[in-house]
Amino acid sequence: MAHTRNAGRPLSPHLQIYKRTLTMTMSIVHRITGLALYGGTILLVWWLLAAATSDAQFALVQAVFGSWIGLLVLFGFTWALIHHTLGGIRHLIWDVGHGFELKDVEMGARLTLASSIILTIAVWAIAYGVM
Score class of each variant (00 low, 15 high):
G39L: 09
K19R: 13
T78E: 02
Y128K: 12
R9V: 10
G66D: 00
F77H: 08
I17V: 10
G8E: 01
T25D: 10
G40F: 03
I121T: 09
I121Y: 06
I28M: 12
G76M: 04
K103C: 08
L92D: 07
A7Q: 12
V123E: 01
I89F: 10
L92P: 00
S54L: 02
G87N: 03
S67W: 00
W46P: 00
G99T: 04
Q57Y: 10
I121W: 08
D55V: 08
A52L: 09
H91T: 06
H30Q: 14
F75I: 08
A2M: 00
A109Y: 08
H14P: 02
L37D: 04
P13T: 07
M26R: 08
R5E: 12
L22F: 10
I93K: 11
R9M: 12
D104Y: 10
P13D: 07
A51Q: 07
L49M: 02
D104V: 01
W46S: 13
P13F: 08
I121R: 04
G76K: 03
H84Q: 10
F58A: 14
T4G: 11
I42R: 01
H14L: 09
S116I: 06
P13Y: 07
T21V: 11
I17T: 13
M24H: 05
A125G: 00
H30F: 14
G8T: 04
Q62C: 09
I28H: 11
H84P: 00
A63G: 12
T112W: 06
I89G: 01
F58Y: 11
